[in-house]
Design a protein around this nucleic acid. Structure first.
Lengths: 152, 152
DNA sequence: ATTTATATTTATAATAATTATAATATAAGT
DNA sequence: ACTTATATTATAATTATTATAAATATAAAT
């Protein structure tokens, strides 16, 4: 964990930003809850436990900054709230998501499934791809099982 | 155009909703601006030209309804506004988007590029895919050309 | 054609997420 | 320690969206 904080600190310094205590607390929360997809509000509440004096606007600003530096990705599942997701270390690309329409759970797929598709977009449409967002909506394993049980 | 309005009318009636004048005006705007990706506000202003007495909330409600009936797709490019996009006739799936990070233009890809990927998700992750959203961020043809010109 | 029940709209207020502002505090470099 | 630029806090403002209640329109049944 300290290692990753250090790296992020360097990334900030490289652009002459500081890793203030508030920013560090925010990053720590993101690291601790890496599997989750926290909204700004979520992050704020969690950071508040570590650093009660922090303001919501600071969290927003920090997330925005981290987003610009590509340390986190800002995602939107269409529920009116932005969510913030640490980029995996060394991940060039955004990872994909599986959103369950039954229970709302969100799974991540880190594999890059889109190499072929990107090639098509590049070659056939002349569009130079920099990044992508892919979300599948459907029914997760658990909910499929539950459905089978109920129907018997 | 009248043909498509008729079809939408039937889709509404099938769920015992009515095609009120306000709803019709809204649908007409969506049809006329099919290539665009209008926000609710955009739609509202355009509908107001046809039917000045319409209220913003009605537009929101209509778009929500059309969205539930899968007549339009509600999309979000991460700029804090929902956009509404008519489904192509007969299109089972959501279409994909190419968003230019230079000029902000949005192109559509109607082909289904994801059949193989969906199969992987289904087989390897046990996730039953119902729909997907795929957006590429990058540089469009026009901006690529412009960049070449500038750099010479 | 009238009545009745239901669906829809309008106008307005409320909410929720996010961003801007001004005053204050902090950190880094001299 | 002092200066300067940057960041934070607390608060207000903005923006998008949703809820509410009263009024209106519509369709079905008489």
């Amino acid at each position: 964990m300290e290692h990753r904080i250090d790296r992020i600190k360097k990334q900030l310094h490289a652009q002459s930003y500081k890793l203030t205590p508030q920013r560090e607390a925010t990053v720590r929360v993101l690291l601790e809850r890496e599997e989750d997809h926290l909204s700004a509000e979520n992050v704020f509440l969690l950071v508040k436990e570590k650093a009660p004096e922090i303001g919501l606007a600071t969290v927003y600003r920090t997330l925005e900054l981290l987003s610009e530096l590509k340390i986190v990705d800002k995602i939107n599942f269409g529920d009116g709230v932005s969510r913030y997701d640490l980029r995996k270390e060394g991940a060039e690309h955004f990872h994909h998501h599986l959103v369950c329409i039954e229970c709302g759970s969100v799974e991540e797929i880190v594999d890059d499934l889109l190499e072929d598709v990107e090639k098509i977009v590049q070659d056939d449409w002349g569009f130079q791809v920099k990044d992508h967002r892919l979300t599948f909506h459907g029914i997760c394993k658990q909910c499929q099982k539950a459905a089978v049980k109920t129907s018997t």
